[in-house]
Amino acid sequence: MEKAQQPQDDFGTFLSSVNRAMKQEKNGSSQISIRIVRYLAHTHEARIESIMMQVRAPFNEFSDGLRELSEAGLIRVDDEDDGSVIELTDEGMRWAKTMVTIDDEGEDL
């Protein structure tokens, strides 16, 4: 596939990655991703079932949202015997804090 032919310049990989990510963003999963991060802002980590209950999204969109966040390095998924725990990474935590301290109009809360 095209991955074998990664661009070797200073920011080519970044631009290809953005374009790819934007093409995949047709199913509204980023809205779910943001809701997941907002929920985790208060708890830092939570079991996958709890997040699903709160986010209330179709399973495939929820799963796409998780994958998207994980690929962006904003969450970690810890698979345990009795289920999965989703945890914000340090960067995810910073995003979450920023999101919850600024309202939808862009003003500081």
């Binding site: 080519g12 980023s30 920023t98 600024i102 862009g106």
Partner: peptide, 24 residues
């Protein structure tokens, strides 16, 4: 770079205020 591209892709499509997106 790949990971950062994912973040930007996420932000571009996210239903958020542009100021928050810029800060993130």
């Amino acid at each position: 770079q790949e990971k950062f591209g994912r973040k930007v892709g996420l932000l571009v499509a996210a239903p958020m205020n542009n100021r928050v997106k810029s800060l993130l």
